[in-house]
Design a protein around this nucleic acid. Structure first.
Lengths: 180, 180
DNA sequence: GTTCTCCATGTGATTTTATAACATAGCAGT
DNA sequence: ACTGCTATGTTATAAAATCACATGGAGAAC
């Protein structure tokens, strides 16, 4: 990810979370993609799972399992933690949603169906999250991993900071800076 | 995998966790570096903080806060969660330790004093963790972030997989593959 | 169509991880 | 010694995740 391949992200990674877009479309498309994906792999896209994905799609933010659980209860589904966790596990396992480890929270996948290693930008002020493709395996970490024979199976790549929208609203001082 | 059980892989410079090395030195050096670092910045490297760092240095694994807490109790320190969390917060804040978000656990920093954005390789079989430098901010994610005006303040980069030592012990089939 | 099996869901209880809130104690500067 | 700041100790509670077991529903086998 260092030098050479630096625009692997740019084309696809329209920063959904921070950009203006038609949100209804975004939910509908997401559900449709999930349905297609499940049909293709003979997975059961049940009501709870569908509802959880819908809840996630309604935001470009990560939601905690208990927030989701509250909304499930409002919709008449079971109200115990396993209900939410099981649906989330399913969605995550099949690439329809991702867990943001830094937040212990979940977000709908922005590129369902594509086999990808996601990377995220998390705004600490407004909590919005944008998904991009990561190419860690090709970057410095991948190089180090190959050099010593470590076999990478999954990656967690999360950048925390301030999104462009919030950066505008807040005096520079309040933002601090960090250039990692 | 406590102090003794490192593997005999050839050490490239960075991936400490999987490389063969003199472990005592590693603890002593770590504490010395921390001391130097705290002295330089006028920070108080108190007994609890020192002990927690020592506990972490004794392993190249991430330890949960409650595991650390148990050991603190054995050493006669306070035994309530805040005791461990406060020491850990201090160490993390000053770059002497890192939190592995994927595991909700903590590990001693392998490059204390250097201002760095750490990246980790986590073996899911033996739980050992190696630290490398990450350059996310300069890589593809950094490029994308700059392109849209997202200001990265902190990064989480964690690769989960199988370390070289475990890969040797386990039939390939059981390992699976992933090439992210 | 009935039965069987598998998987999904519902529910109660528990475990693990983390913080809030407040009291006590130690050091640093005056 | 007084004062202000930081660190520690302790009780209690919140937040996140899992366990264990009962119920139910869809599809395959008969």
């Amino acid at each position: 990810m260092t030098s050479g391949s630096s625009n692997d992200l740019e084309g696809t990674a329209s920063p959904m979370g921070f950009a203006h877009h038609d949100h209804d479309t975004c939910v509908i498309d997401g559900l449709a993609a999930a349905e297609a994906c499940c049909a293709k792999e003979s997975l059961r896209f049940t009501p709870v799972r569908r509802k959880v994905l819908e809840i996630l799609l309604q935001e470009h933010r990560a939601l905690g399992a208990y927030t989701i659980l509250d909304r499930l209860r409002d919709e008449g589904f079971g109200s115990q933690p396993p209900v939410a966790y099981r649906a989330l596990d399913f969605l995550v396992a099949h690439g329809l949603a991702h867990k943001i480890e830094r937040l212990n929270a979940f977000i709908a996948c922005a590129h369902p169906g594509e086999n990808h290693a996601p990377a995220f930008m998390i705004c600490r002020l407004c909590d919005s999250v944008a998904e991009a493709h990561s190419v860690v395996a090709k970057g410095a970490l991948g190089t180090a991993a190959r050099a010593i024979g470590f076999r990478i199976e999954r990656t967690v790549v999360e950048a925390e900071g301030v999104c462009p929208t919030c950066a505008e609203k807040v005096p520079d001082k309040a933002i601090g800076n960090a250039s990692v």
